[in-house]
Design a protein around this nucleic acid. Structure first.
Lengths: 226, 226
DNA sequence: CACGGGTCGATACGCTGTATCGGGAGAGAC
DNA sequence: GTCTCTCCCGATACAGCGTATCGACCCGTG
């Protein structure tokens, strides 16, 4: 059915030519605001005022978009410092800081090999600052720190989310899990676990992260300082 | 969030009574065979010869099912050994072995806090075998090993998948990525990275995993042996 | 025999990623 | 100026997802 009187086209804010960068930034904004589940091609496209299929001119698949998001965030990760230990510590800390700004990173880090320019540049920063240490040590050391960071961040973000969720309805959580946990621990079934929960240290997230990182760096030290 | 206590099974007459365990096993079989994406409630239900909505009598949500799968696999992870170092080494190795049998574990490990009975039992095994080490060290040490293992496994499985995918059409991969990588590395843009790729050691997956693990355990040692 | 409650499965809804294809706009030829 | 060809954009479509809803059926009870 024809609408004879066409509405005045709402003069668009700015044509702002679509680009891969704009797409990736829009996706990151969505993920920062509402989590990774909120990133759908339809929503990204809508945020840019275009149809979903437009995006396929710039990205081949949704997984591509996720890879591009990860690479884009790696631009924020540029370790600094003097000496191998400071550099690796900085790599770990800046990666963690990026994950705090972009919690969805915890879901993607380590999930697929990354070869984007920013990711490579991060590696380059690390490796170039570690001259003096022999290659046979550098490679496994950097790998180990990366692995630790990925796992530590994942667990930290997972805990943070659980706390947030249970804070939102703590009542519900206590009702369903409280009795089960309490009974299980009081059971005598897990005595060592119960002791740890009861008497163990209660480190916060920063302390836990740094403690583990320092274990790792302490273990690398003898080989790095020949 | 899972309710770990099973609801009373509505006692079924017919051929093979549906149960939470049967559902979880079917889901694990599907995931082992075709990856985590192949686990949909519809497919799990179909594998059990049942309508999709039947599952909701045993499981509140799909995330619950994933949590249950992770907990079920933790039954395979029972570290052994004498002394803290052997125990932690065993924890890492058996976890990794489980991830080799169930690659989808790499996608789920660390993704959410786990409180299931098998997961708790794994922790209990570790903690109970580490008596003699003071609690102030045990907690961060176990956390660190867990974090490292999660990250290392993720990366290892991600690489394995990428290799498999690129092996299936190596031609395609070389065409799209080869030139870009070669040009980028020959660029002079990433000299340190190029040196490492060219001259660095080429460790296999086992060596890389053990090297990082030993760094970590070496770093823990001074505090564990007081 | 009638009824009431509870369970099971069909149907439905809104959402996803992506393939397909018709139409319209722009460029080029005469 | 007009006709035609080409190419790109966006609408539509499809198969699948997790899960809410609800009607029908079965079973135990009065």
């Amino acid at each position: 059915m024809v609408v004879w009187e066409q509405p005045e086209p709402p003069d668009r804010p700015a044509p702002a030519p679509l680009s891969r960068d704009r797409i990736v930034r829009a996706a990151i904004d969505l993920a920062d605001a509402d989590g990774l589940d909120a990133v759908s091609l339809r929503k990204v496209a809508a945020a840019l005022g275009v149809g979903p299929m437009r995006l396929y001119g710039y990205i081949a698949t949704k997984e591509d978009l996720l890879d591009l998001m990860v690479d884009a965030v790696h631009a924020e990760i540029r370790p600094t410092g003097d000496g191998w230990r400071e550099v690796l510590h900085s790599l770990a800390s800046t990666t963690r800081a990026a994950a705090h700004r972009h919690e969805w990173l915890a879901d993607l880090l380590g999930g697929r090999p990354q070869l984007g320019p920013n990711t490579l540049a991060t590696s380059e920063s690390v490796l170039s600052a570690m001259d003096g240490v022999d290659l046979g040590t550098v490679v496994p050391a950097v790998s180990a720190v990366n692995a630790y960071v990925i796992g530590a961040i994942r667990r930290e973000i997972a805990e943070r989310r659980a706390e947030r969720a249970s804070g939102m309805d703590k009542r519900q959580w206590q009702v369903t899990h409280g009795p089960y946990l309490q009974r299980t621990l009081a059971n005598g079934q897990f005595p060592a676990l119960a002791t740890v929960v009861h008497d163990g240290p209660h480190l916060n997230a920063d302390e836990t992260f740094l403690a583990g990182l320092n274990f790792l760096l302490d273990g690398i030290a003898p080989r790095a300082t020949h």
